[in-house]
Every structure is written in C-alpha cells, then in structure tokens.
Design a protein around this nucleic acid. Sequence first.
DNA 1: AAAATGCGCAACCGCAGGTGC
DNA 2: AGCACCTGCGGTTGCGCATTT
Length: 343
Amino acid sequence: MGRSPCCDQDKGVKKGPWMPEEDYKLVAYIDKNGYGKWRSLPNIAGLNRCGKSCRLRWMNYLRPDIRRGEFTEEEESTVVKLHALLGNKWSKIANHLPGRTDNEIKNYWNTHMRKKMLQMGIDPITHEPKTNDLSPILDVSQMLAAAIGNGQFGNNTLFNNNIAVEDLLKLQLIHKMLQIITPKAMPNTNSFNTNSLDTKPVANNIKTNPVNPKPEQAAGQLNAIDPHVFTSQIENEDFMPSFEDAWDCFGDNQLPGLVMVSQENLNYQTGAGMMPDYYGDQLREVPSTGSISVTPETSGLNYPGTTQHSSGSNVQEDWEKFLDDETSDSCWKSFLDLTSPTS
DNA sequence: AAAATGCGCAACCGCAGGTGC
DNA sequence: AGCACCTGCGGTTGCGCATTT
C-alpha cells in the first residue's frame, strides 16, 4: 500500500524543540477547535510544523491532563506488572496510568526501572533472573539422578543407608543453595541480589497456588523451617544450619531438585525472591523444557498469585484480577523497595 | 576552570493498522 | 479492490544539563 511522506517534511518545516509561541499557537488552536486533523492543523493554526510533530507535542506535553514529576510507588508497581504482562506496549500501559504518556513511561522504564532491574539481576525484558544462578541446584540434581541411575554408588545407594555419600551430596546441595540465598555469606558469590528478598511465609503463597491441591499439608512440610527464620539466621555469621534443619525444609521422601521442580518454576520462585517453596506432585505437570514467559497466556503456566488466563477472557480482565490479588504483591514490593529513592 | 563523560527526556522517524473515497 | 490519507505506536536520536575527571 503506497504511503505519502508525512506532512510536508520536505518543504522546510521546522524541527527540534518547540518555542513558547509555537506552544501558545497550538494550544490556542486546539482550545478553540479541538484536536484531530493533524495533517491540516499546522497550516490552519499558522505553525510551520509537521502535523505529526504537532500531535506529539500536544499528546506528550501540552495536553491539560498530563501529569508530571516523579512516579509514585504505585505507578512504578503498575508499570512493572503491566510490563511483565504486556511487554513494551507503552500505550497500553499508559492507559492504566492516568496522566502519564506512553513516551514518558517508555523513557522512565529505559532510564530508571530497567537499570534497577539489571542491578537486581533481573532481565528487564523477560523479568527472569538474568544469570543462571540456579544451575548449581540442577547440577546437583543431575548428579544425584546420575548416581542413582547408573549405579555409581551401588544399586539404590541413597536408599540403602549409605550415609556418607548421601550426606556429601546433601552438603553440596545445601552449600549451593546457600550460595544462592546468601551470596555475601558464602564463598563463590554470585550476582543475584538478595538484599530485598521477600521471605513471605511459604504457607501464604501455597494457599493461593492454584496448582497445589493440599495447601495445609504442603505448607506443613515446607515450613519445618520458617523461611523468615531460615534466611535471617543464615545472614548471621554464627549460624550454621544442620543437615537436619535444612533437610527438613523438604517434604518426606523428596530429594530436592531431583524431579519435582522444573527450571521454569525455580526461576520464577527465586525471581520473586523466595526459596523454591512447593514441591507437590502437581508441579510435575509443569513442562520442563522451553523458555519461560511471564505472560500467563503465552506460557500456559499457573504462577502463584496469578490467575490463569482463560481463553474466554482478555488481558485486561486478567490484569484486574491480578491487581486484586493481594498475594501477588510480594515480589513487586521488594522490587519497589529497592527502586525507591529513599532507599 | 575546563574538558570529558553520563544521563534524562523531548522529539523524530519509520512503520503499520484503520478508514473513507 | 485499490489507493491515499490519518493516526498511533515503538524504537531511536540528539540536545541540554549534571557530574566527574
């Protein structure tokens, strides 16, 4: 389809910053005639500007309902959540932020929030942890699986009371997990920032997890050590968790990292600043390959605190449900704590 | 004090969808 | 059906100010 050049941009129209008198002309014209017909507007209004430029100036700067100044925490939270849901759909995001323009949100994202997320080790595009910080767990998981599978330690060694090998593997696993949870307290620190981790009790999360059919039981298993206590104790240099304490985090007959949790779920959980917190059978249904998307309708995953996108509903409905779900606030709150100017 | 560098933001550019003739 | 035009969107640019060297 053919398309003519925008306005009269080849005929010496002015570009660059707008002068106050140009603003005045534009506002005066729109006050009198309303806006629209941008192509013809410059001639009628006596402006030597491209119609597009006039529209942009009005929409992004002169409009009376424009809201300026620092983004509030609530606005930031909304932007982050919507960006996770919609991606770089700035105009759609702007629809949820009265008075903010798509351009302003885009600029704010690129200059402030994107940087903060990178500092947190979170990919601002995918909203996933940027580094492969969970690979150690998977490595150990694979080692365990291999050890069992190929009979390296004898047939079913782990289940035949070979305490030394089992404990060694446990130790390695716990050590690697501690590296992830508290890099500053452990050797081999990594870049994942845990300073603002939200250690919301697991039970609260499980309670709203749509894929966990037995929340009380699961919470009981996993809260043998309260994550609040666990992580705060770890940050205390005097604390050295015992095998029993750490191991009790996991349910009976469950070898952490072996089969129960997919890479996607691990990424999601730790990205939200929490330990992997549920290992119920239901999670086996989560696909273990492919890349995660935080967009529920594209990933097909049920995330804690979110609602599954049904084929009959739209993104906005899901978003409103998401906003109403108070249990979904935790990870964003921690993010905002970090991005707050006062922090 | 001056130059270099970094940063934030307004504005520009190209493209695509929608609409009317 | 095809064309021209209008409008809106998202990526990018470049200017001006602030900070650092």
